[in-house]
Amino acid sequence: MLRTQNLTVAIGGKIICRELSFSIRPGECWGVLGQNGVGKTTLLRTLAGLHQPQVGEVSCAGQPLQDYARRDLARRLGVLLQNEDGEFWGSVLDYVLLGRFPYRTALFGYSAQDEEIAQRALAQMELGELAQRPLNSLSGGECQRATIAQALAQQAQYYLLDEPLQHLDLRHQQQAMRLFMQQRKQGCGLLMVLHDTLWAQRCCDHVLLMFPDGTLQHGAARELLTRGNLEALYQCPLGETEVDGERCFIPGV
């Protein structure tokens, strides 16, 4: 279980959340929704151990994150970052292989099994033919698919995904979400920052709503993803419609 206890997080003097406690259990999918700049990424980085909370702690499988060796933590917790601050000069396959770094045991290079797992992840994201291309020659969407393939190759128990669908076209959004839901079925716990309320409605069983006034609500997606809540969350009027028996909220123009 990935758990936060009495978590108070701040960045640049701004409090993002106060005394937040919730747990992501194996097989659960959480969505985090809120306006730009409300602190979704900071919260996710705190859950990943990249940002220190002011108060409280995050634990994974009963052990606080800071007690883990980073390599052990990386085997349990996969993180897909929204913006990567580096420039990778290698091929797409080399990049996806980095997902196997927490498992690397060979003195030089990666094992055949690691390569096979990376190749499989590439194929799942339809990048097999681009495996030998330099990563920096790919389009934004292809790069995002490579990042997702890298996360899948990590074979973690919990995934924290910051806007995993950014830059993706509809086909690849669907494909990525299917793969995430497969992971969920296999017992992974997921938390994803999303801007598309439709995907949150379709895939998340729990949501965490970060309102502009600094308050947070979390609970079952079906209860919290209401028109009133979403209008308050995004501070814009929404229309409501029904598709395939599911409620959908679309912005009015």
Binding site: R71, D85, G86, E87, F101, F108
Partner: peptide
């Protein structure tokens, strides 16, 4: 060399992939 590859991908990326 694996650590060097990971580090070249960015500091946060390196940390979440298990590099000290």
């Amino acid at each position: 060399s694996g650590g060097l590859d990971v580090l070249a991908g960015g500091l946060d990326k390196a940390a979440v992939l298990g590099l000290a």
